[in-house]
Design a protein around this nucleic acid. Sequence first.
DNA 1: GTCTATACTAGGATAGAC
DNA 2: GTCTATCCTAGTATAGAC
Lengths: 206, 206
Amino acid sequence: MNTVAPPKKASFKEQMHLAREEAIIQTVNRLLAEKGFESMTVDEVAASVGIAKASLYKHFPSKEDLAAAAMVRIMQRTQDMLVALPPADPPMTKLRAVVRWTMEVQLQGEMPSLPHQNSTLRAALMNNRAYLDRLMEVSDTLGGWIQAAQADGTMSSKLPPVVVLYTLFARACDPVVEFLKAGGLYSDAQIVDFVLESCFEGLAAR
Amino acid sequence: MNTVAPPKKASFKEQMHLAREEAIIQTVNRLLAEKGFESMTVDEVAASVGIAKASLYKHFPSKEDLAAAAMVRIMQRTQDMLVALPPADPPMTKLRAVVRWTMEVQLQGEMPSLPHQNSTLRAALMNNRAYLDRLMEVSDTLGGWIQAAQADGTMSSKLPPVVVLYTLFARACDPVVEFLKAGGLYSDAQIVDFVLESCFEGLAAR
DNA sequence: GTCTATACTAGGATAGAC
DNA sequence: GTCTATCCTAGTATAGAC
């Protein structure tokens, strides 16, 4: 008996494996948001997850891969958020919702900060297919909405779409959010509203 | 003879000393802009300046002090720029000029990036009187202009002045500039115009 | 105040037992 | 695939001669 491999048990084991990796990635994500790639240490990740450092390296072959996995995950979450938006909404409404969402993630301390120009992480990401694919799809989706919004007259046509795209991406790591949060004068909801206002309406009076 | 200390020679020596330190700070400034505090190494600084690492440590007692000196210098440059603006210009004009200047500095590769939340540099700066004094004076000057611009109706009054202040500061390290520069599609002048446009006029059509 | 040489430590990665 | 123990490089900082 039992000459046939039991698929359920294998699947269970695999699920445990994936759950563990998910826990790791979540921790890495938080630490990346908190201190950035360079200041985050693998010891710290291991301690925070509650496993030995060597075990971490069984899951991910390097610190860069560890961080890249977290970056892929946030990109995936972004993609999921995009497809969950009401398709019937006008493009400008969807773009505002996107920025709002990224700032909420940031306020939760779950938005990993951009790797710096020279970072080894940047290089790793530029060779990471999973990351680049998601980044490209997100860019395409947003790019389409930007062009549509410019076409229907709700978005300024003075800026090339790529400039708008980068400007929206930049809001995901806007230090203004962090500063206002640290100041403690305003609620999270107010901070989101302020940054949205400055982003879309501008600083000059209308 | 020569019982009186020769002030000229002492001054010359001191000037050499200051010139050397200025060269160091300039190098540090560039490296901070290029790679950030964590990725910048003291070896690299020493090599780039062309002196031995131990000599560096005669000038500055630690890597943090080294970086802090560069941060003080950029703050000083900012202060100097502010006082050089035509006093008769309307406040909104001056604020635009400030943002334009910070972006030009960034495009020159001379704008050190903000230290991350958890960075040891951040802690050092928060204990650095020279830095904090300059930061506060710059903030006060800009804050005054912001209130004046809101009062004369050229700047939106929907945002608290401190939010506007942080938003302007954030433009000094806006990743949009870096991205557009890396893209190579636009000239420096165009990049500056685009970011200024998005910052003051906003993304929504007017 | 500059150098060469070196001490010391943090931190990324691995060996090898279970 | 988890652990403990260890390796080893990179990088901050210092000693000591000139």
